[in-house]
Computed example of a mutant assay.
Amino acid sequence: MDEVTKIRACLFGGAMGDALGAEIEFWNLERIRMRFPGGLTDLPPHDGRAGRITDDTQMTLFTAEGLIRAVVRGQARGICAPEGVVHHALLRWYRTQGGVPKMELCDEGLVADARLRKRRAPGTTCLSALGEARRFGDLARNDSKGCGTIMRVAPCALIACDPAQAETLARDTSALTHGHVLGQEAAVAFARILFEVFHGATLERAVGSVSLSRPIMMALEAAMTARPDGAAETVERLGGGWVAEEALAIAVYAARVGRDVEHGLQIAVTHGGDSDSTGAVAGNLLGLLFPAETLAHPWRSKIECADVIDRIARDLAAAREPGNGFAEDFCDRYLGF
């Protein structure tokens, strides 16, 4: 399977999980079962139609855009701090949500797409941290370990040339909005898992490559040893996904026991917690495990901004191994700040 296909599947898988869980975020399990007695067999309407993405996919796309711009800057100028360029991208997203950044920003790129200006329950931690930043690259001054660190981390794994770079990008970019070390470590762990699977590792081997603090390792152990029945009650014993290590555990569990991409996404969102975020994170991983199936799935054609996701995925693939003319070819779409 070529890299472009896998990157497209990873991003589309995340968007599919996001859209599947968007409507039922904040619902308890009893309400979900009453509304969907046969389970979530299709994307439920959200904000007017099925397939709507939320802040999870929006921020993933802006993170990817920032990483591509960092490559352009690095090639054009010979120096770049990727986290600063990603911060600039996330601040552009913040502006689409009605925020007023303290720094001057550009108006080019994703920020100009009206579809990405929709406000779909953005995380308050991300909004407040971005609103408080005074310089590009400022670290968050909070103690949050919310799942906002992990739900946007996939591009860090997909663009990295080695595991260390994937982990560094994940840690540095998650720290822009979340100050708690466990939130950052959950992002590091998931980026490492995605990187390993992207490069051909089994899920078991990918999880085994992670070596972090005890709470992260316990979350992964719980995901890998929980009863493989895919039941919502089993998922809820892993947590609600509101904090990063719980979202990590639910995503890994769904990928471990899901028979296919659809079944895995159903497991990831059917619980009384942060269903769109756990769906998005699991979808990134399921997309890499089932790339052909993900791209052929009928849900993919229903996803809002599918054209943008596809373009960003292809450009992210090009940025992984940029040729000598990459900066010149891509500078019109990705200004290197």
Rank of each mutant, 00 (worst) to 15 (best):
F136D: 03
A226K: 12
G208Q: 07
R205I: 08
M151R: 15
A223V: 01
D229T: 14
S144A: 15
N142D: 06
L212H: 08
I216Q: 01
R152P: 03
V197S: 07
S174L: 01
P228Y: 13
R135P: 01
A164S: 13
R134H: 11
E167V: 09
R214K: 12
E196I: 05
L194A: 03
F136Y: 15
M217V: 08
E196N: 14
S213N: 12
L139F: 12
A231P: 04
Q184F: 06
S174M: 06
M224T: 09
A160Q: 03
S209H: 12
F136P: 03
A133Y: 05
F190G: 00
R134S: 15
M217E: 13
L194F: 07
V207A: 12
D143T: 10
R227A: 11
L182F: 15
G148E: 06
I150F: 02
R214W: 09
A219K: 01
G131C: 12
T173Y: 02
L169W: 01
R134N: 12
A189M: 08
V210G: 10
G148P: 05
R227V: 10
E236R: 10
A133T: 05
A154W: 05
E204Q: 13
L212A: 08
N142H: 04
A226P: 07
L139H: 07
A206T: 10
D229S: 15
A166M: 03
G208H: 07
F195S: 04
T177L: 07
A232D: 13
V188E: 15
M151Q: 13
A187G: 11
D229P: 05
T202V: 07
S211K: 15
G183L: 12
N142S: 06
L220K: 00
V235M: 14
C161Q: 15
T225R: 14
Q165C: 08
L212P: 06
T173S: 09
A160C: 06
L182S: 09
A166K: 00
M218A: 10
E185G: 02
M224P: 00
D143N: 13
S174V: 00
A157H: 00
D143W: 10
E196C: 09
T168M: 13
C156H: 04
R237V: 10
P228G: 11
A191I: 05
R171T: 05
R152W: 02
L182E: 15
G137Y: 08
L158G: 04
E185H: 14
E167S: 10
A166N: 01
A170N: 05
S213Y: 02
I193Y: 00
L212N: 07
Q184V: 11
P228F: 14
R171E: 14
I159F: 03
I150G: 02
P163E: 15
A231N: 13
A175I: 03
H199C: 06
R135C: 14
R141I: 09
C161W: 11
G137R: 05
S213K: 15
A201H: 12
A201S: 15
A232L: 05
S211W: 13
H180M: 02
G208F: 08
T234C: 13
G179S: 09
L158P: 01
E196Y: 02
F198V: 01
I216M: 11
C147E: 02
I216G: 00
L220T: 04
A222W: 11
